[in-house]
Amino acid sequence: MGDLRPDFVGIEALPGDLAEAVLGQSATPETVAAFRKELKLDLPPHVRYVAWLGAFVRGDFGNSLANRRPVADLISWRFANSLLLAGVTALIAVPVAVILGILAALYRNTVFDRLISMATLSTISFPEFFVAYILIALLSVRVALFPSIANINADMTLGQKLYAICLPCLTLAMVVTAHMMRQTRAAIINILASPFIEMANLKGLRRLRVVVLHAFPNALSPVINVIALNLAYLVVGVVIVEVVFVYPGLGQLLVDSVSKRDIPVVQASGLIFAATYVMLNLLADVLSIVSNPRLRNPR
């Protein structure tokens, strides 16, 4: 419930009248009245909120102001596209990040670790579009390997789609991997410094056994947390990458609708993003509790 409030308050707090803002100062009083009627702006705020909420829950997002089409139609296939992009990225980024993170922690302070640490520090400092344009310049303009515009449509096969989204996936993967890797490394180093790891070493156990059986089960909880949080970040990260590659995803729709002030579309797509984000954060919390041995086996 709390999730729905802020943007509703936002609309209430709109300076001036929404109808005038959308239709422009020159709109005739009749057009404004009709518009207000359509948006039910003539009803009191709490009534509108309840009505809107009820419709939203039923999957009725209303109609777009820009082209009068139902918002749900506009959104559904774009949301699927965004999920495809985020999903493929996650498939690449998660294993790479976790493995590199563990390696960097195990070989701490070696050349390998320092290189990785410099590289990730730079990557997280780069804006996503910088990474994207460098990749375009290198892999699409210099060497024409991949398309610089990730245009996909419903008729394409999965293989064609995957080829089209190569560059956006790569961009996102690089950014997300850098974040995830740094956090994984920190989590593992934290575990390796615990007294029980020293104890395991003093019991004369093999290094592999210490890492796999003693460090790993305890590192699971923080690492899973890191993964889930970064997936949540990924969901938002798609917005910019979609705009760069003109990818027909939900993020691009959101940005377009914001500049057109197409409020119903902004609301619906924003809420879908937020809901996904909240779900993943929730998942992170639940998983880190489930994978924490102390919490899993209460006193």
Partner: peptide
């Protein structure tokens, strides 16, 4: 308390 592995 710190030297036993909490997971086993």
């Amino acid at each position: 308390a710190a030297s036993f592995n909490p997971a086993h």
